[in-house]
Design a protein around this nucleic acid. Structure first.
Lengths: 137, 137
DNA sequence: TACTTTCTTTAGAATCATTATAAACTATAA
DNA sequence: TTATAGTTTATAATGATTCTAAAGAAAGTA
């Protein structure tokens, strides 16, 4: 499996030991054409149901947080009982469909430049995220 | 107290019975100059510690949700372990200061008009919210 | 290779916000 | 005053997330 060699290197470079649990999670998250949104519960189900593997929930939480810290995942800012993560770490925004409870990417160039005309002394902007809520017409 | 007469009327108009618990919560939330942000836990503390009153947590949850449903409160979209509410129900956005974990209003006219150049068939936009994360310089 | 250290994984317990339940209570209308 | 529908409440239940402490695995060193 040469796919995994990349992941092994990436993990090592990040200071994370390439354990088989982390490699499995890498495959699920980063071995796809398209980026996607997920909750820890989603990820856990993919691993146990689709791949028939057993990785402890605690490990999945640990790994997701470690990946987020390293910048390989983004946490999405929205109010929900669950926390959503995004494998698309480029700067972009989201639609949230209240009818289906699903997130949809809204790329940066599909939004006209946002200009914030308010400065807060001693503070700098670290991110600007738009959440567009949609519903059935 | 003529303040309360207003609240009694407002509650009645909204189809909510003006109970003493709801009136007390109205006073805390709406009897101030400035709007503010709070969590259910904050509100509960204000009532028990500052006002020395006892309102069940369940009632506070019920009331806050009822007020939100009627449009007297807004829920703020951001990822946090707690849910934040806002007594400012006009259309506006937020700064979230990661250093202090506090929300700051960003009024609509302090943001240049947002244009979303992506339409989703069969869906309509119900809200557009910007969250600007800031940190110490 | 053997040993040591440090990092990881794990099951299960603990925590914390929130919601559900069901009985007691209260506002309202007739 | 009485009946009814809406409310409050304590408490239990739920569900996501974090903590714990012990067992296991990777990396570094000789």
């Amino acid at each position: 499996m040469n796919i995994n060699i990349d992941f092994v290197n990436k993990l090592r470079i990040s200071g994370l030991r390439p354990t088989k649990q982390r490699l499995k999670i890498c495959e699920v998250l980063f071995n796809t054409e398209k980026t996607f949104h997920f909750t820890v519960n989603d990820l856990s189900k993919i691993i146990s149901e689709k791949l028939n593997q057993k990785i402890s929930l605690a490990t999945i939480y640990n790994t997701v947080h470690a990946f987020k810290k390293k910048g390989y995942l983004k946490e999405i800012s929205m109010n929900s009982d669950k926390t959503y993560f995004d494998t698309n770490t480029t700067h972009h925004h989201h639609f949230f469909d209240s009818s289906t409870m699903k997130l949809i990417d809204l790329s940066d160039d599909q939004v006209e430049k946002i200009k914030i005309n308010k400065a807060l002394p001693g503070k700098k902007i670290s991110s600007v995220e738009i959440l567009v809520k949609i519903e059935n017409e």
